[in-house]
């Protein structure tokens, strides 16, 4: 039983989610991990435990159920894709994981610590970074400054130190910019480093957003439709960058995508949402042949195919 390993995490969680503490341990034991993809990255509960797990997440807006009883378990180092038709609840799920929404039911377990709502303001410190479906770059900053701002959460010097260039501010400034430059080089963005982010073409802006999320070397990277609106070429390029980022920084990736084709080759596992429910959670091959997934995407063949009586 993994009980001892969980105790610490649940104790820590009590400050955020006392009701979770009272309810006791998570019902499902952590999954075995026969083939670990990434390096173990020191989670509290040990190698076998998931980095991120969702338990019984439910969320509704008024009468509309966005998410219903979602369980999800993401292992360290894997690329886990969440797909589903429009309105399936994919973005809501990312917003729950990143603390933008508070779920009505269930809880999020991050690195062994259980939260009723993930604290958004501390997300970066927890090693979680995300991108947004609609571009959320700082348009008035250069590409380099956009990426460097991904390290803002680490800055300890105050404004006076920065203005006068004294204390630790100089070192911090140098460090942020040099790390930002490294990420720009890694994502092949060096050529546009001094351009204002708002003036770049759409595909590049998406990549700059990825760079801003990656610069903090997060343990968990949430990508909300990173390939939306891209050409086929840009999509495969982006897929290459996502995989390279995982390999280089041992980052766990949770990715939302609308386009099934692109993610088949990229993902280690795929979860499929439909109308707020998880209808499949398996390897790409299994998902591809899953009848319920096919039905969700293509629609169920009606008995009345000729449309008689309509």
């Amino acid at each position: 039983m993994p009980l001892p390993s969980y105790t610490l995490g649940v104790m820590e969680a009590s400050a955020y989610a006392p009701e979770v503490f009272a309810r006791g341990l998570p019902s499902s034991p952590p999954e075995q991990q026969p083939e670990a993809n990434g390096e173990p990255i020191g989670s509290v509960a040990g190698v076998a435990s998931p980095l991120l797990s969702l338990q019984g997440i439910g969320l509704s807006f008024g009468g509309v159920v966005a998410l219903a009883d979602i369980d999800l378990s993401v292992r360290p180092g894997e690329i886990r894709t969440i797909i589903g038709p429009n309105g399936a609840g994919k973005s809501s799920l990312i917003n729950v994981i990143s603390g933008v929404y508070r779920p009505d039911r269930g809880h999020v377990q991050l690195d062994g610590v259980v939260y009723a709502q993930v604290p958004t303001q501390r997300l970066a410190q927890l090693g979680v970074a995300r991108t947004f479906q609609n571009l959320a770059l700082f348009k008035g900053l250069s590409v380099l400054d956009n990426v460097a701002s991904g390290l803002a959460y680490k800055v300890r010097s105050n404004f006076a130190g920065q203005v006068l260039g004294i204390g630790r501010s100089r070192g911090e400034q140098r460090d942020s910019l040099s790390r930002a430059e490294q990420i720009l080089e890694f994502l092949d963005l060096t050529a546009v480093r001094d351009r204002l982010a708002g003036t770049l073409p759409y595909g590049l802006q998406k990549r700059v957003e990825l760079a801003r999320a990656l610069v903090a070397e997060p343990r968990l990277l949430l990508l909300d439709e990173p390939m939306a609106g891209m050409t086929a070429g840009e999509k495969s390029e982006m897929a290459t960058f996502v995989r390279a980022a995982r390999d280089r920084f041992a980052t766990t990736v949770v990715l939302i995508e609308h386009d099934v084709g692109v993610v088949m080759g990229l993902s280690d596992r795929i979860a499929v949402l439909d109308y707020g429910r998880k209808i499949a959670d398996a390897t790409p091959d299994e998902v591809r042949n899953d009848q319920r997934v096919i039905d969700a995407y293509l629609g169920v063949a009606s008995d009345n195919e000729d449309g008689a009586g309509i």
Partner: peptide, 10 residues
């Protein structure tokens, strides 16, 4: 430019 994104990145 984007308050939500600013909060998310800390």
């Amino acid at each position: 430019d984007n308050e939500t994104a600013a909060r998310i990145i800390g």
